[in-house]
Design a binder for these strands. Sequence first.
DNA 1: TGTACATCAGTGAACGCGCGTTCACTGATGTAC
DNA 2: TGTACATCAGTGAACGCGCGTTCACTGATGTAC
Lengths: 192, 192
Amino acid sequence: MHAALELVSSEANFSAISLRRIARQAGVVPTAFYRHFEDLDALGLTLIEDTFRSLRQILGDAALASMPLKGLVRYSVELFAHYVRDNRLLFQFVVKERFAGTVAMREAIHNEIVLLTNALAADLARFDEFSHISQDDLRVISDLVVNTVITLSERILDVDPDNAEDDALMLRAEKQLRLIFMGVGRWESRSA
Amino acid sequence: MHAALELVSSEANFSAISLRRIARQAGVVPTAFYRHFEDLDALGLTLIEDTFRSLRQILGDAALASMPLKGLVRYSVELFAHYVRDNRLLFQFVVKERFAGTVAMREAIHNEIVLLTNALAADLARFDEFSHISQDDLRVISDLVVNTVITLSERILDVDPDNAEDDALMLRAEKQLRLIFMGVGRWESRSA
DNA sequence: TGTACATCAGTGAACGCGCGTTCACTGATGTAC
DNA sequence: TGTACATCAGTGAACGCGCGTTCACTGATGTAC
């Protein structure tokens, strides 16, 4: 698994690297691969599952819903950015395969993102500040927030890890999220 | 070029399809490929250039900056969604290669998106409503808007073209953009 | 503590296949005079 | 209007290579009694 991540990170994408190259990178004979996975698809899906399983755990542990709204944006962005940096190879894999992967991989990633969006909408619903917003609109807002955070992680992964440019990226994302929540303050959910 | 787009659209991504498959799809012998392109990289870059050249033209012709702000969001979203649908194969290609393509392709796409963001920031600067926003902040806002529109097009490309689900996607994107501009109304650019 | 057996990860040879690229070629279309 | 030549897109044979997958194998580690 690690060999596959290294190859995808340093060149091309998952469909462009062969079983034999992964085995070579892992220092093992090609046939040894079959001791661990049915085929390359199974490996790819496992990598995606692992990424999101631990992401869900991190976000769950953070218990964001029980925090004061003030400062939540900055804290969440920093938590997330830190986690992305700590799992650079896994996230690079997911970002590349989100649109370029097999149908099964794309669906797996999409479903996980929908789960995150739902969880965020449920968390937001617990704040008094958002009591005037309908359920549907909370989902629309959560969707925008999740997309903004995804874009942030794509950018963090795009810059050299030793480069301190990350701070500028985080500041921009924070600004964008604060802008969104300013809009939410003025938002009125109209019944259809 | 069309054969390559068809293959990328119907399966996998550009790095996963071979020169021979493209030639076969085009009804031509593999060596005929070299009459038109140096190699596959050159073909990929040409497809990206074509996509953005005509997108820039469409957006330029629309002269959005000279329109009243009211109704601009809806009009822009509809214009863009229409264009994406009309160029489904090209956009599917770009979406897949934005992160999974070669370094040259990724950079080409990234640069084009930066150009679009700059153009939007310049357009926004012409509205009196945004005169209280700094240049930097206009870029941050444009960035958020562009990302939201990119996400919309990714979603339009993901649903079946005969399916009328597009309307729901467009409504959501419109809501998100209006939310952003509500935030802009309350935004105050602080000098550092 | 010792013995017998099962499980497991890795080995290495072999297969047929599709790949990118080379080369010399053909024949249709365009251009110069 | 007719002739000679250049340009161009496509052809088809051939090459060496890396690929995924099969198979029977080896030897280390774990388990039962």
